[in-house]
Nucleic acid binder design. Structure first.
Lengths: 270, 270
DNA sequence: CGAGGAATTGAGTAGGTTCAAGGCCGGTGG
DNA sequence: CCACCGGCCTTGAACCTACTCAATTCCTCG
């Protein structure tokens, strides 16, 4: 059972490998899925709230965000899309997008043909399982944001945000040590965390003064991750970014074998 | 093509019917799924953060909530589970629950056997599609909460919360007119919206004074839904609670037929 | 080198919290 | 049927976090 282990160059593979053990074949399929990259400038709207999105995509390089804009000019960033993250992977033809997506730096995408993912999942149950876990983790992150916005002050929100970013970047092999690329303005951070740019500025200065972070030239370094985690009141393992628990792996193997023995059975995943 | 239309007594059927047209057979399967009800008192912990949840369930009567508790005694309610809502329907053996679930009134549940849903979905693509849409709508609601907590004041948060509740209750046939059962304390509302009970109290008084709501004896009435929606800065149709767009129905029919013609194909759903 | 976005700083304000006390109401037991 | 009890709601006052508005400086990029 030849499973892929180390971190791939391909961020999608790296991310999904964290959720389920992928075979060499699985990896090939995912790499093929990302092969036709498209380059997009910074500030390009990929999905426009209120219109029907054309098709899904995977971010392979760069950075984008989902956001909502309001009449009064306020903005709320919902999630960042870093390499390996995707939008409407299943091509579910939303009639109307309830939020927009925009690139924040020059970015590369692989657009996904409608229906393609269903096909893949059918023949690659491990990919299906990984996508399921990925969706569950995404939901867990949304819930965590609700907690953060509902019950944490600015300092804790920012500490949380930085810790989350570090972990996500590590999961796709984009952060050796405690440093990562962060091409966000303070206004972007504010819009992510429900704060104002002015206040973000002041809190960042505090964190810098205490030697907890360095943030300059679009690079963020967390000097004391453990202290930041405690400021964020962060529950170490909420993120499901850890290796898939052994029980689940056994479960998956069971289903894979079942499928082999009984070809009609659906892959129990999408 | 005999599809079920009107609102069923069964809240799960009513809810899923809003997402995809269900056949008589589909409805029967869902009703069977909910047949073994279990009665639970108020204040019973169904899932305990930090432990492995035993199994998934559907709420058939009553009210529960997902929440997180903190060392300092603060609480954040993540989502309410009203009839028709479910927890871990797919029985995905989470190694550790990242939040707790507790009943808020005497409640009836149907517990779901592990693997059962995979089986059902395999043979009932319309149910699979409906569950997919349900999951997407749940994610949309989580995103909306992020917006509400990030960028709205207390008055708008509460107006939003009440509008959402009304719509959700209507979707399952639990609200004629503009009234619904709301057995929450002001502290519960505060914990849902990231506020304090004291402040919720003051804002509620304002809404009452303006004749916008009545909230007493565990019953909530919205007297001017349109005005409340505008206070909430609510985008009418974000909720995906509307009828499934025609395009998606066509798509579903396509896939259903495809499956009939080519039995090996997975149902593209779970 | 100039221009424009981003970061920084200051001062005043507001929305919401905190702490604390009192009143209401529903349910329970005598 | 009434009295009691505990949880919930209500009110007041002081405080504080974060916002707003505005001006200045710093960077970065062309």
């Amino acid at each position: 059972m030849p499973h892929h282990n180390g971190q791939s160059q391909n961020p999608l593979v790296a991310k999904l490998s964290g959720f389920a053990p992928l075979s060499r074949d699985d990896v090939g399929v995912l790499e093929a899925l990302c092969s036709k990259e498209e380059r997009v400038n910074a500030g390009v709207t990929l999905v426009d709230e209120g219109t029907a999105p054309r098709r899904g995509f995977v971010v392979t390089h760069g950075l984008a965000c989902r956001y909502r804009l309001f009449a009064d000019g306020h903005r709320q960033i919902l999630t960042l899309l870093i390499p390996g993250d995707f939008y409407d992977l299943h091509g579910f033809l939303l009639s109307v997008a309830d939020h927009s997506v925009v690139t924040m730096v020059p970015t590369r995408l692989a657009t996904i043909e409608r229906g393609k993912v269903f096909e893949i999942v059918e023949h690659h149950p491990r990919i299906g399982a990984a996508l399921w876990w990925s969706a569950m983790q995404e939901a867990a992150m949304l819930r965590e944001r609700i907690v953060v916005l509902g019950r944490r002050n600015a300092r804790a929100r920012i500490a949380y945000f930085f810790c989350e970013l570090l972990w996500r970047h590590r999961a796709i092999g984009l952060s050796e040590d405690q440093t990562l690329r962060l091409p966000l303005t303070q206004a972007d951070i504010a819009d992510t965390l429900g704060l104002t740019a002015v206040h973000v500025n002041r809190v960042l200065q505090g964190l810098r003064r205490e030697g907890l972070i360095t943030l300059a030239h679009r690079r963020l370094t967390l000097h004391q991750v453990d202290r930041l985690q405690s400021i964020a009141q962060l529950n170490q393992d909420y993120l499901h970014l850890k290796a898939v628990p052994a029980a689940v792996e056994r479960d998956l193997e069971g289903r894979v074998q079942q499928q082999a023995a009984e070809p009609r059975r659906a892959a129990g995943s999408c």
